[in-house]
């Protein structure tokens, strides 16, 4: 009898041991291995590559503080990883050097209104985690030209920034429509604006958001009209290095967190109140009151709470930098999927 009991106990013990081992293994699998994430945590600071200065996406305000949609993403990422949106070092990058700076490891992530393309994903060996701004190449021309559509620009000269995908789009569009649009390639926007202002070119072209920004920078914005067509897809988003899958996944889900906040109606202002009162399981999971979504990503469980608390949701940021009081750019493709837009977060499950 005693023997049998002992046997049973041994069996149980062995089983328990097996489970313990198994669950230990499972825990080990959940642990996130990412050299970039580790480096950021150890450094206590995120190094974020942004534009050198463009209204809407990344610019320094009169106090020298970085502002803009891309900057908000840097802050959100820092809030999720380090718990503090201020722990970011911004590195302004030109369109020529941006990818080299990322590849060489000088920055942790590049969030710089950069178009996602096939060759950048393959030949440059970069990962494209998330699109934070859907737009296309847009044209701004002098009102006095009386041009209503891009197709009527035959023979016109357009100022363009070099080192971008824009030159290609213009050539392709011209070929497809059997017209010739002349281009004038500038290194920096300041000279391009000044040349447009002086009448050297009939218009200026860039991504939709940037064109709206450029128009606001002209001496007399009312003299310029933005044509309705977008001649290309320019889906702008973040870039990371390949070979650090977990870091790219984190960058991707920080973007989704900004969107999910808007889907759930959680804003910077009401996030504390909702956190205290909510019984909705989805919201509780999102804010880290239930489940362990944060652990799967290698950050604290209340990472989404920290993001919304420090920078707000996607809609709030769009409103702040592109809304009627800023660049007055309609949300269009950047609306949530529920309102006919393209911005769609994957489910928190």
């Amino acid at each position: 009898m005693i023997r049998q009991v002992a046997k049973a106990f041994t069996c149980l013990a062995a089983l328990a041991g097996l489970f313990a081992l198994g669950s230990g293994g499972a825990l080990a699998q959940n642990e996130v291995k990412s050299p970039t994430l580790d480096a950021v945590k150890k450094r206590g600071q995120l190094i974020c590559g942004v534009d050198t200065g463009i209204p809407g996406f990344a610019f320094q305000d009169s106090a020298g503080k970085w502002q803009g949609l891309d900057v908000a993403y840097c802050r959100a990422l820092a809030a999720a990883v380090l718990g503090d949106p201020e722990k970011v070092k911004y590195v302004g990058t030109t369109s020529k050097v941006r990818f080299s700076v990322l590849q060489s490891g000088e920055i942790d992530v590049l969030i710089r209104d950069s178009t996602h393309t096939l060759t950048r994903n393959t030949e440059l060996g970069l990962a494209e985690p998330a699109v934070n701004f859907f737009t296309g190449e847009s044209f701004m021309v002098r009102k006095a030209l009386n041009v209503a559509h891009v197709k009527e620009l035959n023979g016109a000269t357009i100022c363009v920034l070099t080192g971008t995908t824009l030159e290609l789009n213009i050539a392709d569009f011209g070929r497809a429509n059997n017209i010739k649009i002349n281009t004038l390639l500038f290194e920096k926007p300041e000279e391009a604006f000044a040349a447009a202002e002086a009448g050297r070119c009939d218009g200026y072209t860039d991504d939709g958001g940037s064109v709206a920004a450029s128009r606001s920078a002209m001496k007399n914005p009312a003299d310029w009209v933005i044509l309705p067509e977008l001649i290309s897809r320019e889906f702008l988003g973040s870039y990371t290095r390949q070979g650090d899958e977990r870091w790219s996944i984190l960058v991707k889900w920080v973007h989704y967190a900004m969107l999910e906040g808007e889907v759930l109606g959680i804003t910077k202002a009401n996030v504390d109140q909702i956190k205290g009162e909510t019984k909705d399981p989805e919201t509780r999971g999102f804010l880290g009151l239930e489940g362990n979504f944060g652990k799967f990503l290698g950050v604290d469980n209340d990472w989404c709470y920290k993001i919304i608390k420090s920078v707000g949701n996607y809609g709030e940021n769009y409103e702040m930098y592109f809304g009627p009081n800023a660049l007055a750019l309609p949300r269009g493709w950047n609306e949530l999927y529920t309102k006919g837009g393209l911005q769609a977060p994957l489910p928190w499950r």
Partner: peptide, 11 residues
Amino acid sequence: AGTVMNQANKE
């Protein structure tokens, strides 16, 4: 060193 570098991704 501008357009071609960017287009061909050959820095």
